[in-house]
């Protein structure tokens, strides 16, 4: 079949919701690829999504050198987005991030998995809360 694979409808709807939120929000698909973040997240990321494009979520997260509230490196397995992707459960963490614009910011991140139909994991949503 000659057609391209569409994003799952749940991701399409999540993107539209995120686009209309003032809360910084990102979306990753089931394979762990960052597929979208909204305009509100630009302040934290330091750049717009159109400048960055789709990329592996781990690579995206690591670029912020996330640290604990005590400024110790945050272990990968404590990253809320990693937990939501791999363990498929909601997670929340307060941390410091170094944005791409060079500014150190204290934020909290809540990430949760998205399931479609009965059991189909389609991706995650991550929400940033400014501390």
């Amino acid at each position: 079949m000659a057609t391209a694979r569409s994003k799952h409808l749940v991701l399409i709807l999540a993107r539209e919701l995120a686009s209309n939120l003032a809360t910084p929000t990102l979306i990753a698909d089931a394979e762990g690829t960052l597929v979208f973040f909204n305009d509100a997240a630009e302040e934290i990321v330091g750049r717009g999504f159109s400048e960055i494009g789709e990329m592996p979520m781990d690579e995206f997260s690591a670029s912020f050198t996330p640290r604990t509230r005590n400024h110790a490196p945050l272990a990968d397995e404590r990253r809320p987005t990693r937990i939501a992707l791999e363990e498929r459960r909601a997670a929340h963490e307060q941390l410091w991030v170094l944005s791409r614009d060079g500014v150190d910011r204290q934020v909290a991140i809540t990430a949760f998995p998205l399931f479609a139909e009965a059991d189909e994991f389609v991706g995650i949503v991550g929400i940033f809360w400014r501390e």
Binding site: A2, R5, S6
Partner: peptide, 12 residues
């Protein structure tokens, strides 16, 4: 088109 609802079924 990958971000369009039903894009994979209606494309071309």
């Amino acid at each position: 088109r990958d971000w369009i609802s039903g894009g994979s079924i209606a494309e071309d």
